[in-house]
Nucleic acid binder design. Structure first.
Lengths: 391, 391
DNA sequence: TCCCATTTGTCAAGGACATAGACAAATTGC
DNA sequence: GCAATTTGTCTATGTCCTTGACAAATGGGA
């Protein structure tokens, strides 16, 4: 960066941004082609590319040839110029990865969650990051950003995790603040299902659409919403908390009220209870239940069909409210094709405009992917974004 | 505008935008104060203000005095420099208004809808606009934009109204295109409930919040959603079509399926049928029903309570999906405080985080207000907006 | 009444950034 | 080897913004 005295930085910022975006979109490209694509003059492009190369963002990678005329030097993004961390905090496992400016994974790992929770998790995160940095051939001080996915409801403004029943002590500290202070870099905290939705938007089934929902079905249930191309968090960060949908039970029943009417009806506990209720005797886990289903156990078939019926009604409700083009399912139950096929069967019978249903492309890495997507996007914004002065 | 050869227009555009926004936010203001607020130099402000005054956007209105130092000339937006039309097309009435750049209503009227529909409506609109323009002391060719609110589901991309059962022939033509060609200015078509939500966001109960829903209850039911501060339309423009919520009946019942399960349970027809079912004999209209309620008719009380209970469940479902801070109710039924108070009573018993409930500030003018809000916003964008080149 | 501090708004000089066009350098095809 | 083509730099020019000097206008106090 030229150390200008803040004279007219905006024009150069816009030009720089256009150049970077063009290189991102086209991969290896010559200055002449950048000029053609951006509509800026050759001179301006040469100046901007020189600055970007001096600062390490771009690097020359080769030459054109085979066509008449002088050969051009081609440039690429220097992917290593920006590294960030994505962490998916689960109640039993922590997954973490380092990715570069282009979103390539340069190191990834997975460990058991420290059951003591609270500050012990912060220690675990920073150890994990040091290991990953070493594996990636760099050091932690070269990292620019951490995105942390966590279960629970969190305040969109402060990042404080208000409710996270499955992880002890995490709502007692401001995890974002503490972790950020420890690392010395910004930390973004986001609900894990919201991250999964972002992951699908970034490189999964959601790349083509701006309106979809990610529905996670497992021990608990949750939803991440992409609307108008952006994550929808709601007023208190509780958008997509479909555990409380008044479906599958009496909304005024105090039991369903506290646990969540819908979660009480379709969570893994409910499925197994339903199986037993139908006379099933061969399953004590959800995996057993699906095995029984595939073996033709009529109680298992009935339990799964009934669950699918309720999920279809929930998707109908979501469709009436949000009109998504697509619903992506994930989680230990939501990723089962047996269930999803059953849902696909019920859906057109309870809503006139059924959305498409797909199973998550990333399985249990969806939240990790989403964190990387957010990290890459945020790095681009921070490094090359054009911010108009707020009046 | 100086007729520059597209050299570096972006910096001046940004400065112009900052000046205009500052004058909008502060009303009558001097150039020196604009400079202080924007952080731009006095010289730049003088240049920009001169251009804006030459082009008619700003006008000098007075002088400061009473303080030491030379008096400053104060400037204001020339509100008349931009006029737009808002039309609310209903099945029985058409409301229309002309507003200026500041959103002041300069002419307003209301007529019966031409029952022949289709092209006859386009004729009616253009006649109406000519009348309004005359009343406002101007002519139709001075108008910049029309915003038209209509019932029905419309395609966000083309503006074509796909479903509008209560208005004949309107789905057979591309109303936006035909009307726009007739008027020679852009026409924006939007669902009327969406417009009502925009109206509340602009100058109603929604000014303080970025996440709320407008629920219209009347002959039919509908919802407009403001999420992250913007209207949420969904993939097919059907977001908020809560007629199809699987609440108040069996979602798999073919009857409720086609008409809409929720609408079949809480629309005005359903309310009156419910009243009769409870033994009521003194109401043939919704107004009668509320009169009977206020007279202590137990059947009316039961019918309205049951309706409120179902609406509360629907709001619980919407809350679980969207987490709005506020739900605004409107429409002939939704505007009744008797019903809304009953809803307020039920809501905390069926959801742990009940949103606030308010009755629309604008009654049956909500959609008209929303149209004006969109028109003003769009005029600002068109006239002073900064558009970066799309790479 | 007069003078001075204060504020407004213009003028002049200078820097950053963009464009256009000329031109040298490099490459392919005949 | 030469012409055509393409790349990338150099030069000239113009817009836009900033800073600092300065004239003009005003209120308050001696």
């Amino acid at each position: 960066m030229t150390s200008s005295v803040a004279q007219t930085p905006i024009a150069r910022k816009i030009s720089t941004n256009a150049v970077i975006r063009t290189v991102f979109a086209n991969g290896s490209i010559s200055r002449a082609d950048i000029a053609k694509l951006t509509g800026l003059s050759k001179q301006t492009i040469s100046d901007v590319v020189r600055d970007l190369e001096d600062d390490g963002w771009l690097k020359p990678v080769g030459q054109t040839d085979g066509r008449p005329g002088r050969n051009a030097i081609t440039y690429e993004i220097n992917a290593r110029a920006g590294l960030a961390v994505s962490i998916d905090l689960g109640s039993t496992k922590i997954a973490a990865a380092i990715c570069d400016l282009l979103g390539n994974v340069v190191a990834e790992t997975k460990v058991s969650t420290d059951p003591r929770g609270g500050m012990h998790l912060v220690n675990q995160f920073s150890d994990l990051i040091a290991e990953l940095a070493f594996a990636a051939g760099t050091t932690a001080d070269k990292l620019r950003l951490v995105v942390l996915g966590s279960p629970g409801v969190l305040d969109p403004a402060t990042g404080h995790i208000n409710v996270a029943p499955s992880i002890p002590g995490i709502d007692a500290i401001n995890l974002r603040q503490v972790f950020s202070d420890r690392m010395g870099i910004p930390v973004i905290v986001e609900n894990d299902v919201n991250l999964a939705a972002q992951g699908e938007r970034w490189r999964g089934h959601g790349v083509e659409t701006s309106n979809f929902a990610f529905v996670a079905l497992g021990t608990g249930v949750g939803m991440g919403i992409i609307a108008n191309g952006a994550l929808l968090r709601g007023a208190r960060g509780a958008a997509g908390e479909i555990a409380y949908l008044p479906i599958g039970g009496d909304a005024f029943d105090p039991g369903g009220f506290t646990l969540g009417t819908f979660e009480s009806a379709v969570g893994s506990v409910a499925m197994l209870r339903r199986y037993v209720g139908f006379g099933g005797r061969n399953a004590s886990t959800v995996a057993d239940l699906f095995a029984a289903f595939n073996a033709g156990d009529t109680s298992a078939v009935a339990a799964i069909e009934e669950t699918a019926r309720l999920v279809a009604v929930a998707i109908a409700a979501i469709g009436a409210a949000l009109d998504p083009e697509l619903v992506i399912t994930g989680g230990s139950i939501g990723a089962r094709p047996e269930l999803v096929n059953a849902i696909r069967g019920f859906l057109p019978r309870c809503t006139p405009y059924p959305p498409r249903i797909e199973i998550s492309r990333f399985g249990n890495r969806a939240a990790l992917m989403g964190g990387m997507g957010i990290a890459v996007e945020r790095m681009h914004d921070d490094l090359f974004g054009v911010k108009l002065r707020e009046v």
